[in-house]
């Protein structure tokens, strides 16, 4: 659906700037997450350092989005779909910032792991990160394209991510019992899987806000059956 422009061009510009900042922030968070995971899988400290460095810019964008949003509220007093978009954007940015924080956590733990001999169990993280990353990307896409169905699908995928994390943690805990020398390494992998599970939670929050922005429907705190 083509959304007609506002009569007031500066309002469109302000909404456009907010949207661009949000997209930039989401793009950086995605890159940071990607770098952190690759830093882990490729045992590359530089990638980890880059992931950590990204966080500062993402933090600044979170503040900028708040500023953009407040300015739009003060100057243009948006209503209806405009209001929902602005409010949702302001709610999205802390979730994106938390995703970036998880990327930083993963990168820091990856650097610790990189100081020790490689653990083959790191492969257990691969499907979890793929699932979490796709949830995050889709949640942002759903918001940008106002795709309610995609957003609902993201929410429904969170349970699968939780199951994947639980399964990986079970295997890693067993390995901890069998190989006490690598206790610290397995613990770091467990904590990384938890970071990725949190990414899924933030993607779920983003998807819920995407549904609200597009359809004015509050699907938070509902059973999965009701959401889907």
């Amino acid at each position: 659906m083509v959304i007609p422009k506002h009569i007031l061009g500066t309002f469109d510009e302000a909404l456009g700037a907010l949207r661009n900042d949000l997209l930039m922030m989401a793009g950086l968070a995605e890159r940071s997450l990607d770098r952190a995971i690759n830093g882990l899988l490729q045992r590359d400290d530089d990638l980890c350092a880059n992931a950590i460095a990204d966080d500062e810019e993402i933090d600044q964008l979170e503040k900028q989005i708040d500023k953009d949003g407040f300015e739009i509220l003060v100057r243009y007093q948006p209503v209806a779909s405009d209001l929902r978009r602005v409010i949702s954007a302001m709610k999205l940015s802390p979730n994106i910032e938390r995703v970036a924080d998880q990327a930083t956590n993963i990168a820091k733990r990856a650097r610790k792991l990189n100081r020790h001999p490689p653990l083959p169990e790191v492969q257990l993280i691969v499907p979890i990160q793929a699932h979490a990353l796709s949830m995050f990307k889709d949640s942002i896409d759903a918001f940008v394209r106002e795709d309610v169905e995609l957003a609902r699908a993201v929410v429904s995928r969170d349970q699968q991510l939780d199951d994947m994390k639980r399964s990986a943690n079970r295997q890693l805990t067993e390995r901890m019992v069998q190989d006490r020398d690598q206790l610290r390494g397995y613990l770091n992998l467990i904590l990384i899987s938890r970071c990725l599970e949190r990414v899924g939670d933030h993607a779920t929050n983003i998807a819920e806000d995407a549904v609200y922005a597009a359809a004015a429907e509050d699907i938070r705190h509902q059973t999965l059956t009701a959401v889907v």
Binding site: P4, H6, I7, P78, V79, A80, S81, L83, R84, A216
Partner: peptide, 19 residues
């Protein structure tokens, strides 16, 4: 009406999109 109007004409008017 001001968060989720039912009619597109209402939405276009209150959001300042009336051409």
């Amino acid at each position: 009406i001001f968060t989720n109007p039912g009619q597109k004409q209402t939405e276009d008017y209150i959001t300042g999109r009336f051409g």
